[in-house]
Computed example of a mutant assay.
Amino acid sequence: PELQVSLFLMFLFIYLFTILGNMGLIMLIRIVAQLHTPMYFFPSNLAFIDIFYCSTVMPKALENFQSNQRSIFFVGCFVQIECFLLGSMQSAIPYSVVVSQKVCNWLGVMPYAIGFTNSLISVCVISSLAFCYSNAFGTEMVIFVLAGFTLLSSLLITVTYITIISAILKNQSAPGRQKAFSTCTSHLTGVTIFCGSLIFTYLQLDNTSSLIHAQLASVFYTTVIPMLNLLIYSVRNKDVKNALLRVIHRKLFP
Rank of each mutant, 00 (worst) to 15 (best):
E2F: 06
V247T: 01
T208Y: 11
S186A: 13
I232S: 00
V240I: 14
N118S: 00
A130T: 02
F65M: 14
V125M: 04
Q178K: 10
G138D: 09
F181I: 14
P59N: 05
I162V: 14
L244D: 02
L120C: 07
F220V: 09
Q101W: 13
A130F: 01
L86N: 05
K102D: 13
L16Q: 14
V5A: 06
Y15G: 04
L198C: 05
L9P: 00
F74H: 07
L12P: 00
C83F: 13
V247S: 03
Y221Q: 10
I126G: 01
S67A: 12
L85E: 01
V98G: 09
S119I: 00
C124K: 00
S153I: 01
Q69M: 04
Y233N: 10
G21V: 04
L46Q: 12
N207P: 03
F181L: 15
Q66P: 10
L16I: 15
F84T: 02
T208A: 09
P111M: 09
S153K: 02
S71D: 13
V109D: 12
G148Y: 14
S210P: 10
V97M: 09
N118I: 00
G190C: 13
L62N: 04
S119F: 00
L152Y: 11
S128V: 00
S153W: 07
I199E: 04
Y202K: 02
S182A: 07
M23H: 08
Q90H: 11
L129W: 01
F74K: 05
Q101I: 05
V109Y: 15
F52Q: 10
S122R: 00
I162A: 12
T192P: 03
I114P: 04
V109K: 12
L62Q: 05
T185N: 09
D239L: 10
Y202N: 05
I193H: 04
I29W: 08
T139I: 10
V224M: 05
L25T: 05
S44I: 03
